[in-house]
């Protein structure tokens, strides 16, 4: 089945087995291996991407459903070669450890900041409760999101 969608800002038309999961398509056909599979059941958040600007699990979407949608993966954040403010904030606030949850965590945070440019700590913790990090108590992650939010607000908002 030929599917037409936008992937990391580029229009794509691709012949895909529609019954495959989006996570497999992204990782295997587009080599976007930043999308990580930690559970495959929508519980850990490692495969979080943005679909039409909203965080979703790439393991909970079928390829055949992609027509007309706009997808953004972690790779799309730094497509210009330069890391996005959120990515920088994660690094600078020591919010990256083993790194396996990081892409999904950053995308969940991205989704939050698109809707809420100035989240409280509680709002951040609630928004990332679908993403599991086992390397921390989430403190540095919360700090990173707050830091990125402040920097984005200073720049005039998230893109």
């Amino acid at each position: 089945m030929i599917l037409h969608f936008i992937l990391n800002s580029k229009p794509v038309s691709k012949d895909l087995d529609p019954s495959r999961r989006l996570i497999d398509v992204l990782r295997e056909d587009f080599l976007l291996t930043g999308v990580k599979e930690g559970c495959g059941e929508g519980e850990c958040g490692s495969c979080t991407i943005l679909m039409d600007g909203l965080p979703v699990h790439a393991c909970m979407v079928l390829a055949g459903q992609l027509d007309g949608h706009r997808l953004l993966t972690i790779e799309g954040l730094s497509a210009s070669g330069e890391l996005d403010i959120l990515q920088q904030a994660f690094i600078e606030n020591n919010a990256v450890h083993c790194g396996f949850c990081t892409p999904g965590m950053i995308m969940a945070a991205k989704g939050l900041l698109l809707q809420n440019p100035d989240p409280t700590e509680e709002e951040i913790r609630t928004a990332i409760s679908g993403n599991i990090c086992r390397c921390s108590d989430y403190r540095q992650i919360v700090m990173a999101v707050k830091d990125a939010a402040a920097r984005l607000r200073a720049q005039g908002g998230a893109r």
Partner: peptide
């Protein structure tokens, strides 16, 4: 002094290659 862990740029960019990648 505080520093991030090793290879954070790649990890944050989604470019770090784990065995599954």
């Amino acid at each position: 002094k505080d520093d991030s862990v090793f290879n954070t740029q790649d990890k944050a960019a989604g470019a770090a290659l784990y065995a599954c990648d």
